[in-house]
Design a protein around this nucleic acid. Sequence first.
DNA 1: TTCAGAAACGGAGGCACCTCCGATTAGTCT
DNA 2: AGACTAATCGGAGGTGCCTCCGTTTCTGAA
Lengths: 207, 207
Amino acid sequence: MGTREPPEPKEIKPSPPARRLRADASRNREKLVEIAATAFAERGGNASLEEIARQAGVGIGTLYRHFPTREHLVEVLYRREVEALCAAAEELALREAPDVALAEWMQRFVDYIAAKRGMANSLRILFDANSEVFANTSGMVALALQRLVDAAIADGSIRSDIDISDISQALSGIYSAPDTPDWRDRSRRLVSLLMDGLRWGSAKARS
Amino acid sequence: MGTREPPEPKEIKPSPPARRLRADASRNREKLVEIAATAFAERGGNASLEEIARQAGVGIGTLYRHFPTREHLVEVLYRREVEALCAAAEELALREAPDVALAEWMQRFVDYIAAKRGMANSLRILFDANSEVFANTSGMVALALQRLVDAAIADGSIRSDIDISDISQALSGIYSAPDTPDWRDRSRRLVSLLMDGLRWGSAKARS
DNA sequence: TTCAGAAACGGAGGCACCTCCGATTAGTCT
DNA sequence: AGACTAATCGGAGGTGCCTCCGTTTCTGAA
């Protein structure tokens, strides 16, 4: 399998008007994204596009029309997952106590990032080609985190003298740890450790 | 052309004993390196290995036996060029006045790095897989630079209150400038500007 | 010089990438 | 309903990657 240079970047740009897709087209696109999501999750950035097309019951040409390059496809999947992650934040905020929601979400975030390791290269290329993607998505994630943190502070369940950049940095330490078999357990412990730190000195702890 | 992830790193390690190659083998290897050097220079990191084998009048299998991965080949070419660069330093030191030698060599260095832009990806993978390569080669280059600078300082033709890390940083500013058509002219001017700075306040300038 | 074994050769084959274009079909107009 | 057409489909085809293994070439010892 080659490890060639990226081809000349071939503009990854938003398709301007985006007239409504024909029924079959949008069906196929949907199916492709679905299949691609699991394929990339399983096989990492090396998933075969032909295999994806085959599993989606679609010709390779159709895949390439919808996603002219591997990076287009990666972009769509990436956005999709970021949105899911942010949606999870809102959902957790409604369902759980603020500090529990925050803890749970941080764990998901770490899992999510860890899963992306195998695609580092594709993502790097994507961000190079279209830095907007990175700006948008990281903004969304920061916003989700901000809300969870604000809620937990307002509720008095975590201390108020930290901000999300502190937390981001702590999280990055966790997910960049070496990739051992017990990685996930370790990261769970670290996240809960972090949470304990956040709870310490909170209004509730003081009371 | 794919932009897949790197395959699992497949050990790029020194071949320990390296028994003498059979005559035909070393002939072929030589030819391959030769051809590959120009192919990579022209087409960047995307040069086709099959094309290289073909031009060398050799089967693709032969190429892969000598260089099991693209990165092995890149490594050999890279080392070769670094050695040439260092050899040029010695040669210039003998032939030219110390400050002229330094100026000329810095220009070559910048050209050299600029030529490597297209292979950034392959080099990155190579360095990840075998960081020794990077350590060795950058050490060699630093040493070459050190000698030229020492000679020029000893000779009094440049100031003595700088060290090579200052110069390295200045050079990196030059070669990381945007890749416009007049890039080379600009870099020549910048190098000569840097040289003037180095000469200023030197023993000779003071006298 | 001869020859046997080791070493090297080289290309067929299998998979993947991506393009191109004739066949097919969804949606629209009469 | 039926015809029209633009959008979509899908796969053949050319190229590249890399592996595998039967064939050829070299070399050192007899």
